[in-house]
């Protein structure tokens, strides 16, 4: 195991805090691209720093990194395979119809019939 001094870890922690501050204040510029980069780009940088320095991924055998990243790749696959149905509102010969019901939690589970309104409406 690489022998870093206490100072080293404190330094990494300092960098992480600086990144945290940036990611909080990035969205205040209200530029979408900047928000995206400061929020998610920095999340990746922070995660990288923690994984490399705190979890000592850098001194593990290479296959540890491979197996974890393979799991991540599988999650990307899941996303890629499911998003065309779940994320999209319509597609080839199908369209989602139900409007999201907004409001406080006054609805009780299963009390209302999901398709009733639109199903009935289309019969008019």
């Amino acid at each position: 195991m690489a022998d870093h001094g206490t100072q080293y870890y404190v330094k990494i922690w300092g960098i992480l805090l600086v990144l945290l501050v940036i990611s909080i204040f990035g969205p205040f510029l209200e530029i979408p691209a900047v928000t995206l980069i400061t929020a998610f780009g920095i999340a990746f940088v922070k995660a990288y720093l923690v994984v490399k320095n705190f979890m000592h991924m850098n001194v593990q055998p290479a296959y540890v990194g491979y197996m974890l990243s393979t799991c991540l790749v599988f999650m990307l696959l899941l996303f890629a395979g499911s998003a065309p149905d779940v994320m999209k509102k319509d597609g080839d010969n199908w369209v989602k119809t139900v409007v999201v019901v907004q409001g406080p939690a006054t609805m009780h589970h299963g009390e209302e019939n999901s398709g009733d309104e639109h199903g009935g409406a289309e019969l008019h």
């Binding site: 010969n93 199908w94 369209v95 989602k96 119809t97 139900v98 999901s114 398709g115």
Partner: peptide
């Protein structure tokens, strides 16, 4: 499927 109209 509830919540979708599928055309064929």
């Amino acid at each position: 499927i509830p919540g979708r109209v599928i055309t064929g």
